[in-house]
Amino acid sequence: MNMYWAFGTVLLLLAITAPLALLFGFGGAVAARSRIAPLRWFGQGYMAVVRGIPDIVFFLFFVIALDQALEYIRHRWKCPDWEEPVRQGNDFIVCQIAKLPLNNAPQWIHEVYGFSLAVLTFAIVFGAFAGNVLYGAMNAVPRAQVETAEAYGFTPRQTFRRIIVPQMWVYALPGLSNVWMVLIKATPLLFLLGVEDIVYWARELGGSKTPQFTDYPHPDWRMWYFGALLVFYLLFTRVSEVVFDRLMTRLTFGQATAGGEAQRKVAA
């Protein structure tokens, strides 16, 4: 039964991560365009570093790193008179009440905590990809549009809010749909982050680490489980493709792009 819920876990992860990553990406893109140099360096550095390294490395790295960072902050805040260093040789030790989640917390809190770490990690990594797309899209808004706004006496902030942001989506969509596809395909990595997702269940069910204890009435079915997952992902990708096609048609309507021009000609 848990296995079916795991599909829900994956969908929930996608539903939370996608807007969050978009938000991170938007922040990154805005930072990278900023006139304040350190902020610009931060935005550009974020995108360059995250995109330059295999993301599985980030998935393995961030979960421990974020966990330790959060615990360290709580540690400093809650136990100010702790004398010993936090890192003792190979151990990472914080005081008991700074543990996250608390040792005596119920099981579901542990699971939720693990899940939110995973979501945050996904958002950070895919935020960088989305940020890069949005950055390009903001620059792709025709220069004439921005100039017109300037001629009407818009401040840079107004130009950004009223001209660039509404118009950039059509340029961003192909890239964003690409990021979305990649995001779908990255969800199996959840399993590496310790969340009990579909890959976990497909591996566990019928796994024969201790065959004498787990007498299944059937032989090893894991191949079929993974086959089913393969089909699940293929269908999901296909549906997304269709949806994005529709959305693109909607968005190009009336835009000064090749696609919009083609629509206009068909209508005329």
Partner: peptide
């Protein structure tokens, strides 16, 4: 259309 990860497992 499918994740490489799942392809490996499968």
């Amino acid at each position: 259309g499918s994740p490489l990860f799942i392809q490996f497992f499968f």
